[in-house]
Design a protein around this nucleic acid. Structure first.
Lengths: 237, 237
DNA sequence: TGTACATCAGTGAACGCGCGTTCACTGATGTAC
DNA sequence: TGTACATCAGTGAACGCGCGTTCACTGATGTAC
């Protein structure tokens, strides 16, 4: 096993060029029209050459999806890492998620928009998809959130069994410092972050929130604050 | 102006057959692959015949979108109408929205999923899209919601200017009985309803909430309760 | 260090397919007198 | 009540296009001895 030879390096470079081109294509066409031939055209290769790198269109889609989850998570992690304090970090995770989505709306739509019809996501996407949620769990842990929510009861806890059973896989918690109700609210908070970003990107804020970036951001920050207060993270603002 | 003649009735029937077939097609293919030829095939007509009813593929898409908004709103209105009490009605609006979405996931995705690339929604969709939000405003009004939210301030109010300016168009309020903060939370609540339904339909509840309809519904009702408490609608449960 | 061979990247033609839209046309349904 | 004409619904061929994938092939890059 020596370092990667010239061929391996070329291979990696072309692989990257293929996914880049495909990601660029999504800006104008939507995932279900992603075209192998168009990628080849952009790279100046024969369409058949793509099949040396990717065994089918669906596999290319999977690469893009996994790539988007990981890229978003990495960008959010990088900004969250250096933040001190649970509430500040919560805020940054929300804002960084939104920033990434605004920069790359087509990749956000790829992972959080309508599923591609006829495409079944393989297992590979699960890990990358849970990286940001894992950060949020870290916040619940750090802030020792003990929520007291009248709407929460044993039935709700039971409905969340799959997640509660796998909690330690997502984040390594020697002893869990937040209660089930806090987790239930946490799932809601994450749902809301993605839901709000989707509303904004997909045009449902039109005629509601002002069109300027500053109005949009103001309202989103308001939502983050309401959620943080609801969770009981840090002092109210 | 007599009653509609035989031709007009046929026309309406075929029009309906076209949109029905198109809606059915969306179950398997996604809006951007919606095919005029496939519709014609299913109805046993020449593909060119469709153009007697619809001037282009995009116009057909618009018909489907407007139809979906109206159908969803009608179904929610019907169930909300006969509910007494703000909190009960809030709950029913949420549940009815979700039920409709689960019954017709492709139509939900059409209006709340990723936008169709290259398709620009015309004005016709605005009215139908605000029917359910109008119901929610009615609830704020009926419950005289005066929210006191520490995260709310004048900047947030300003970001919501477009909506606040048009409030009386959406619901006829002689004197408004809720404050701006309540409205800000109301926008959040509606965002959350749609966000949560999207999460469920698009597969993001997998490994989090149990897969059974009962677990899914339990968690969704929990969310509705948390939001109602947050808004201060009715007594806590 | 040189040679023989295996692996790999890339080509270009071909397969069979579906698409939106236009156009000149045929018959049937309606309308005006 | 009957006739002449206009409108309308529907046809089928054609236009020009793009797609995913396979296949036999050519050269270049690597590897083993």
């Amino acid at each position: 096993m020596s370092e990667p030879g010239i061929r391996a390096r070329n291979r990696a470079a072309i692989m990257a060029a293929i996914t880049d081109s495909a990601n660029r294509q999504l800006l104008e066409a939507g995932p279900s029209e992603l075209s192998v031939r168009a990628v080849a055209r952009e790279l100046g290769m024969a369409s058949s050459a793509i099949y040396r790198y990717v065994s089918s269109r669906d596999e290319l889609l999977t690469l893009l999806i996994v790539g988007a989850f990981n890229d978003m998570a990495q960008s959010v992690e990088a900004r969250a890492e250096r933040m001190k304090g649970a509430r500040k970090r919560w805020q940054v995770i929300g804002l960084a998620s939104r920033d990434w989505a605004i920069e790359q709306p087509q990749r956000f739509a790829l992972i959080y928009g309508s599923p591609v019809p006829g495409y079944a996501a393989p297992q590979d996407t699960i890990g990358p998809a849970t990286r940001i949620p894992a950060l949020l769990i870290g916040i619940l842990q750090e802030a020792h959130v003990q929520a007291d929510v009248s709407a929460f009861d044993a039935r709700v806890a039971r409905s969340l069994r799959p997640a509660l059973a796998n909690l330690d896989q997502w984040a390594d918690l020697r002893t869990r410092e937040f209660n089930d109700a806090a987790f239930a609210l946490g799932v809601m908070a994450w749902t809301h972050i993605i839901g709000s970003i989707s509303f904004e990107l997909f045009g449902h804020r039109h005629n509601v929130v002002g069109d300027s970036q500053s109005d949009r951001r103001t309202y989103f920050e308001f939502e983050l604050n309401v959620l943080a207060d609801l969770l009981g993270i840090g002092q109210g603002v």
